[in-house]
């Protein structure tokens, strides 16, 4: 390990002059205020009665209004399991799908950075033909498993015969762009097909449906973000490990991943946040058992208009765990890295 130095964190090791520091703090605190004030408003709204919310702006508890825990009581005791059940669902679905997504995504990202792919047009063409056959089978009234099997059979057949003759193809960048392009269609257009998909698999209203969908939906983001981090990992380390006989898997696990920890942590946080907060897909894929918290938040706007006080409580208890996680993981983003390449 001697050849690798640990660094304390930031880039600028030059000392900062006093005026620059003052200006920096002014800017930082200004943005802190911008960020925190809305959250403060949530916090005080959660302590108000409806009358105080509708009556005009009241800012400071005990001075402007008498705080009450009515809303908290409603969420935790009146709603009880209607709060805790979605909460558990959100935690399970969020963490599981994020873990899977980050794992699969960083593998793919690493592969796209360090390996060269050439997907032949022949293979793509075979796939399209196979897909067309599957679609025709299903449209013609055949059951979908038959269509699936037929499609796969045709695909393998074509791939091993005709497709080999085509030399030209798409490379790594094209694969990456294809992946990210899967996020371009708004969920409103894809949610019904996904619903039917899981209905056929009898997986509606289960954790599995949400976990699988979120994994698929967020993989492109992980791939793109991790690609850049892996690119900044010095390739020399991997090369020397490879010369020592380490397998690609071992290099990935023992060298590349540890070096990309800040990126992994940042990416983990994003994907967790996305999965934690997703609304439309959760709405359609769940009904009684697997509902998640964003639905509970949105549901606070019903026939009587938004119930700000309940909504504020829900939002606060929703971001609690994510903030805790951010605080816990912040260390890793800040910790600095193994910098400096191999020396020898």
């Amino acid at each position: 390990m001697a050849s690798i130095r640990r660094r304390g964190g930031s880039v600028s090791t030059t000392s900062i002059s006093f005026p620059a520091m003052t200006l920096s703090y002014i800017a930082l605190f200004a943005w802190t205020f911008v960020v925190l004030f809305p959250l403060y408003w949530l916090a005080v709204t959660a302590l108000k009665t409806p009358l105080e919310v509708n009556g005009g702006p009241f800012y400071i508890p005990w001075r402007d209004f008498q705080p009450t825990l009515d809303s908290w009581h409603y969420i935790f005791f009146d709603l009880r399991e209607d709060t805790f059940r979605p909460y558990t669902n959100t935690v399970v679905v969020g963490l599981t799908s994020t873990a899977i997504t980050v794992l699969l995504g960083s593998m793919a990202a690493y592969a796209l950075v360090r390996m060269r792919y050439q997907v032949g047009f022949g293979a793509i063409g075979s796939f399209v033909i196979a897909l067309a056959i599957a679609v025709v089978v299903v449209v013609a009234g055949g059951p979908w498993p038959v269509g699936l099997v037929a499609g796969i059979a045709v695909f393998v057949l074509l791939l091993q015969t005709v497709a080999r003759r085509f030399k030209r193809g798409v490379g790594n960048d094209d694969i990456a762009f294809w992946m990210i392009s899967q996020r371009m269609l708004p969920p409103v257009a894809t949610v019904i097909p996904i619903y039917i998909f899981f209905q056929q698999l009898q997986l509606l209203d289960t954790w599995a449906a949400l976990i699988i969908t979120y994994t698929a939906a967020h993989l492109p983001i992980v791939v793109w973000l991790m690609r850049d981090y892996f690119q900044s990992v010095p390739v020399e380390l991997e090369e020397s490990a490879a010369i020592d006989g380490a397998s690609p898997y071992r290099i990935f696990r023992s060298i590349v991943l540890p070096l990309a920890v800040p990126g992994l942590v940042a990416t983990f946080l994003f994907v967790l946040v996305f999965a934690w907060n997703e609304y439309l897909i959760a709405l359609f894929l769940t009904s009684a058992n697997a509902q998640t918290l964003p639905l509970t938040v949105a549901a606070q706007n019903a026939t009587r208009g938004p119930q700000w006080w309940y909504m504020s409580v829900l939002i606060l208890i929703m971001i609690g765990p994510v903030i805790a996680m951010a605080i816990a993981l912040e260390r890793y983003i800040a910790k600095g890295l193994l910098v400096g390449a191999v020396k020898g």
């Binding site: 039917i196 709405l283 949105a298």
Partner: peptide
């Protein structure tokens, strides 16, 4: 068993459920 969904999406949700023969309600 009372199942609830957000007000704004009740119509779509129930109609989707019935029309795709999911029949979870």
């Amino acid at each position: 068993q009372i199942i609830t969904v957000p007000f704004s999406d009740l119509y779509q949700k129930v109609l989707t459920d019935f029309s795709t023969k999911t029949n979870s309600y």
